[in-house]
Structures are given as structure tokens and as C-alpha cells.
Amino acid sequence: MINSIKALRVSLGSMMRKKVTAEYPKEHLPIQDRYMGFPALLFDAARDEPFCTGCMVCVRYCPTQCMSAEMTDNEKFAEGDSHRKKIINTFEINLGRCILCGICVDVCNFDAIEMSHEHELGDRMRDGNRVDLPTLLKMGTKYQSETGWKQSKPNLPSPKERAVIAEAKAAKEAAEAAANPPLEAEPEATAT
């Protein structure tokens, strides 16, 4: 009898507790800042092109070989608008194969790929989880705007910018030269 009352007390006590579960499709538990979801390609808004140059280093180091990439010559470089000689042409990730290890992000030298916060995946087709470049960039831009992602190092100057810089430098040097005319060489001491 006493035991049943004790048990009842425990049950009543735990009934009053706060709920710890969440009903999934209706409510989502918060995601931590460092959460590693599916990889996404980031977009360089300053140059209006992806950061990715298609160097393939992520493709080579991916443990599951879930990515493929192809590079092409960057037209913007030819026009002088970008510092990237090569740019990504096609990029495909089979998200169904990705194991979310983050090795691609570690090895990338161009800030081009990042583990986004996307984590929900579902498709009826076997190949439905293959995502192409536009989708990856869309995921990336969403991640950038949501988290306030920052570039680790500034972009190199593009050919046009380089020309402007060189011009400015030359102008500055010329101005300096005009301001301080070089001293006339002292006459050499003649041997007596």
C-alpha cells in the first residue's frame, strides 16, 4: 500500500515536468551555429560569381566520391572584371552519398564551399538528391545571408583594378617626384 502511494507520488511529480520532445514537422529544434549540414557553394557578391574555381581539391579528398566538378575559362577575367582566371562550370553533389564529414571545407583554398545548415532531404527518385551548381549556390547564398558568413581573406585585385592601382601608384610616384626634385649630384672631388 505504502509502495503504491510512493509510486503514485513519483508519477504525479514527473507528470508536472516540462516537455522535452518536439513534434517534428510542426516544430524544429534549434540548430547550433557550427552545425554541419549538406555542403553548399558560396557566392561572391562583390564579383557576382561563385568563389569556386573548380580546382577539384574537394573532389579528390571526398571520402565517398560524392562530388564532381568541371572548370572553365572565366570570361570576366578576360574582360578584366574578375581576378579568377578559371571558374566553376558544372558542379554536382550527390547529397544522398554525402556523409557530412566536412573534409571538403577543410581542404578548400578559396572559401568556396561551406557546410550549410540544410539537413532535410527527401525524394522519390534514386537520383533525386543530386544537386547541380545553381541549387548549390542557392543553398550557399541562403547560408551566407542567414549566418553573416565572412570571407577569410579579401579578394585579389582584378586586372581592371590592378590597372587602376598601377595608374594611381604611377601618378603618386610622379607627384612625389615633382614635389621633391632629386638633388643635383654633388660634383665629384677631383684629385689634386
Binding site: Q32, R34, Y35, L100, C101, I103
Partner: peptide, 24 residues
């Protein structure tokens, strides 16, 4: 763990010679 390494279970956090990044 998720806040530290980015994943609940498959962390890939330890590296040869240290860890991937400092904790939060």
C-alpha cells in the same frame, strides 16, 4: 557535441596533432 563539432554523432573532429578547431 553538435555545438562543438558540428555533428551529433559522426563528428570527424579530432585531427592528427590536435583537434579541428577550438571549442565554443
Amino acid at each position: 557535441f553538435e555545438a562543438t563539432s558540428g555533428a551529433r554523432m559522426m563528428h570527424n573532429f579530432f585531427r592528427v596533432g590536435g583537434i579541428k578547431q577550438d571549442v565554443i
